[in-house]
Amino acid sequence: MALDKNGIAKRIAQEVQDGFYVNLGIGIPTLVANYVRNDIEVEFQSENGVLGMGPFPFEGEEDADIINAGKQTITTMPGASFFDSSMSFAMIRGKHVHLTILGAMEVSENGDIANWKIPGKMVKGMGGAMDLVASAENIIVAMMHTNKAGESKILKRCSLPLTGVGCVTKVVTNLAVLEVKNNAFHLLERAPGVSVEEIQNATEGTLIVEGEIPEMDV
C-alpha cells in the first residue's frame, strides 16, 4: 500500500543521524520531527533564525516572538540559539547544516527540483528554498510520486520553473525511496506492498532497478 504523508515522514526520519543539524521545509518535512529516534541528538534549524527548535507550546504559553519559518508558534530546546537572517543563511550556504528536507512539485533525473512557481497561478515566492537547495550537500525531497491526475512528478526534465539544478540526492515518495545519481533515479526501496512495476509505471524519468528491491521498514 502506498504511504500517506506520515508514512513518508516516518521513512525520511530514518535518514536523520546522531549529531545532525537539520532544516525541515513546510508540509510533509515538518512531520519528520515527530518520528526521529529519541536516542540520538539532533538539532532542528529554522531559517527565520532559530537552532534547537522544539515542539509547539502548550496552550497559553505561545510567544509571538518565537516562531518557525512557517510562522507557527514554537518552543526551543535546551541549548537553542537565536540569530539574524544573514547568519541563518550562513549556516545553510556555508554547509553547516547537514541535512535539508523539503517538498517538491517536480524532480528530474539529473537532480533538478521545482517547488516554487506554477505559471499562471499566484506566485507566493521561493522563500529560503533556493538558498537551501543551492548549498546543501544532502537534500532529501518528500513528495507524492504522482499528481492528482495520476501523472508522474518524477521526471526526465522538470516542466515547471526550477528552484535549483542538479542538487537532489534522494527522493522519498508515497511509493518508493529513490537515489538520484548519474542522471537516473535508482530504486532503493518500495513502499510496503507496492510492486516494482507500479513504481515503474508512475515514474517518467529513467528508473534503474538492480536486484531485489526491499520493502521500506516503516
Binding site: 502548550f58 509571538a64 516572538d65 516562531i67 512557517g70 510562522k71 507557527q72 508558534t73
Partner: peptide, 12 residues
C-alpha cells in the same frame, strides 16, 4: 499588537 500569524499549540 505583536499579532501571531499561525497559533499552533499542543495539549498538556
Amino acid at each position: 499588537e505583536k499579532r501571531i500569524e499561525q497559533r499552533t499549540v499542543r495539549q498538556k
